[in-house]
Design a protein around this nucleic acid. Sequence first.
DNA 1: TTGACATATGAGAAAAAGCGAATATTCTGA
DNA 2: TCAGAATATTCGCTTTTTCTCATATGTCAA
Lengths: 114, 114
Amino acid sequence: MPDALRRFKSEIFQALANPTRIAIVELLSEREISAGELIAKLGMEQTNVSQHLAVLRARQIVVNRKVGSQVFYSLRDPVILEVLAPMRRYFHQHLKEALSILDEIEKAPVESGE
Amino acid sequence: MPDALRRFKSEIFQALANPTRIAIVELLSEREISAGELIAKLGMEQTNVSQHLAVLRARQIVVNRKVGSQVFYSLRDPVILEVLAPMRRYFHQHLKEALSILDEIEKAPVESGE
DNA sequence: TTGACATATGAGAAAAAGCGAATATTCTGA
DNA sequence: TCAGAATATTCGCTTTTTCTCATATGTCAA
């Protein structure tokens, strides 16, 4: 695969490589939401959320629609959700492992030297 | 969804948010490959590839197996490929758009000022 | 037009990622 | 044990990301 394609692909991953932006995409998976409502739901700085939206816009993950002074955001292409779906399965599995490791650590005898 | 889970998820995306690491995962999708062969195929600095492998290891995307002085890498969980698959569909679609825009630019009359 | 609201943009600081050079580690074979 | 091969790690340096503060833009209602 040519390098240009890999760069293109990695840019899309990068758009999702941030907890806030993942939260935004997940919120938008159900329905169109205004910038203001996103800010409220995320409980973050207006300016910061706006910048994350700019990133998602630049990568064309989301599109927007102005209604008066409000701006409504939605996913441009629901196929992006099909990327998130197997990811969910993937991390659930790994999270289970991570948790069970934590479990073992907690159950381990204290005098073992950890 | 709790923030910790989003952070966990975004870390996996971040592991894939780099052209070289995508190349590595794609190479490993077929079979186990040694570090040396990966370096050769990628045509990059040994030290750099090794660092990218460290990132993929830290995120547990890959696992390794030592054989003598060589180290063979493979995907820990093929489910990761199911994340890449819909991504392929997604970016193909968008790439088509991007290319058709390029097409239009090239076909556009020169005297239009571009 | 003015004031208030909703949203976007820009600048600058801090943190993280990426890279190459040098160095360390581990293994093998003589 | 020593030399050399394969791989990993550390260190500076540059670039990118993320955040906050300040400011700009656009819209509505009075």
